[in-house]
Amino acid sequence: MPVLERGGAQVWQRRTMGERLVRWIGWLIGLVVFAVCWQKISESTTWFFVWDAPRIAGDIWDRATPPKWEYIARLGRPIWDTLNIATLGTMISLCLAVPVAFLAARNTTPSALFVRPVALLIIVATRSINSLIWALLLIAIIGPGVFAGVVAIAIRSIGFCAKLLYEAIEEIDATQVEAISATGASRWQVMAYGIVPQILPAFAGIAVFRWDINIRESTVLGLVGAGGIGLQLSSSLNVLAWPQVSLILLVILAAVVISEWVSAKVRGAII
């Protein structure tokens, strides 16, 4: 009891004695676990390499600077591919995510017992596998190249977009939907007039947000051979051409900064 009688006065405390004890023990256990883990990691680390790390990093930095600026002429095409992978992948995933979201949202699903679990399964399955792994799988199936990258990005994004969208659908104002139903509108009309206008801002926000994420994801897809600037990065790393690597990293950085700026602007304009 947080309120105690003590000498006729009512004393209020945030926690009871028992609760305080439990908390104190909880913190103690956390501290002990931390210390033990620290020791285990320390034992299995070759400290020689760690102590050596600053020297190696400095060495790589020396080799990587200055970036090989003239190499930029060869990067135009790959970065364009990367942008296309992200944009096309996002568009395809949105087309697939919209129906999945409507099937998954509790208030629009045709059957909460049969259809909804399937939609949720699609969401979880596509979300839980990284796009690099999707790309590896797809390269095995449809061969290396930009197309594999597009499909990998598209599949990976379905779950993300559908999840956010179905949450938006579940949060809509039900009386607006009621009002449209009360006019004698059909199921599809209720959707077009009662539901779609309410989720449109969320949809636009999700689309731009995911596009922004996908630009970052598609820069690495090339590492496994799925097209884009990652391809250049991996070949430069393989021949230890550090000045090229540093230039590629700069280009990726620039692309990501620009995409983030665009998405922030667009989202600001909509919401």
Binding site: A179, I180, A182, G184
Partner: peptide, 21 residues
């Protein structure tokens, strides 16, 4: 039911207009 609903207009407490239209 849709046909019958056309014959009955409804007005709501919080207006229930579709806000973004």
């Amino acid at each position: 039911l849709r046909k019958a609903r056309r014959e009955m207009g409804m007005i709501f407490q919080e207006y229930a207009l579709v806000e973004r239209l």
